[in-house]
Design a protein around this nucleic acid. Structure first.
Lengths: 148, 148
DNA sequence: GTTATTGCAAAGAATTTGCATAATC
DNA sequence: GATTATGCAAATTCTTTGCAATAAC
């Protein structure tokens, strides 16, 4: 499951030392102190690799493109893992997260961002045809829940 | 609160017609059919303006930079509205969203992405000094909840 | 020896911005 | 007439990729 290179080891070690949640660029600067010739591309590739291997988590990764909605009433959205289509989620309590998340490292919690991840009916149909009924595993950026 | 231009009107009208949740580029293509000389920059500026004015919602907007975390245990994160620092949220039930969000336009819900928005202690301190105790209003990309 | 991984530089994708012109208030 | 908004193009920002060289198994 991947080779043991100095670069990969250093990136993982340094990330494990950090209480913050660094960006790739920050990690690059840090790794550089130990491996002056390391490249940013390598950092990106290794972070991706480590995340896929489940050794680290990649956070804050909503797809890069913004979407817009003329319906400003409070509702949440589902994003299709396959085609990226966005749908509305209805039938949820308006404020579904039972917070006052008490312990938040000194942060005042003001709000939250919640987006569901799912599969749209069209992609489900296509997947069924190809017999790939449930192969898609995905980085959701959060623990989340899998359906039985 | 902004001028009444053909571009802004067309963008809003077209967005209101659409059941999907288009990207800026998609909206640009559509608006173009009515205003062939409209530019993509104008579409971006107007979408931003409309979102600030509360007439539309901007979705799927996590900050663009990915963050990495060596702690793979299930926990959520808070992002500071001011400095973008990321912290851990503890003391939450492991699976805080009471789903089976029943009605989801035919989507199978697989998981969700949840991130809190807050203010870190350092920014709170700075804000207090400047007397700006609570001016920051922000696009959270989701309804969320405000603290009393 | 094969094959994964690297460094480097260039390409991509989405969004933002500077500036002179044009439209709105 | 003052100011906001526009079109256009160039600039930014984060991330990915092609490729020949290198290192790991």
């Amino acid at each position: 499951m991947g080779r043991d290179t100095a670069q990969r080891r250093v990136i993982l070690e340094e990330l494990m030392k950090l209480p913050s949640h660094p960006t790739a660029a920050e990690l690059y600067e840090i790794a550089r102190r130990r491996l002056p010739r390391i490249s940013l591309g390598t950092v990106y590739r290794n972070l991706e690799h480590l995340a896929r291997a489940g050794q680290i988590r990649k956070l804050g990764v909503g797809p890069t493109e913004a979407r817009f909605d003329a319906d400003t009433s409070p509702h949440h959205h589902v994003r299709c893992v396959q085609c990226d289509r966005l749908g509305d989620v209805l039938g949820l309590p308006e404020d579904p997260v039972p917070v006052n998340p008490t312990v938040a490292e000194g942060y005042d919690i003001l709000a939250y961002r919640l987006e569901f991840v799912g599969r749209c009916s069209q992609c489900r149909a296509e997947a069924a045809v190809k017999g790939l009924s449930d192969n898609a595993e995905q980085d959701t950026g959060a623990p989340g829940r899998k359906q039985p």
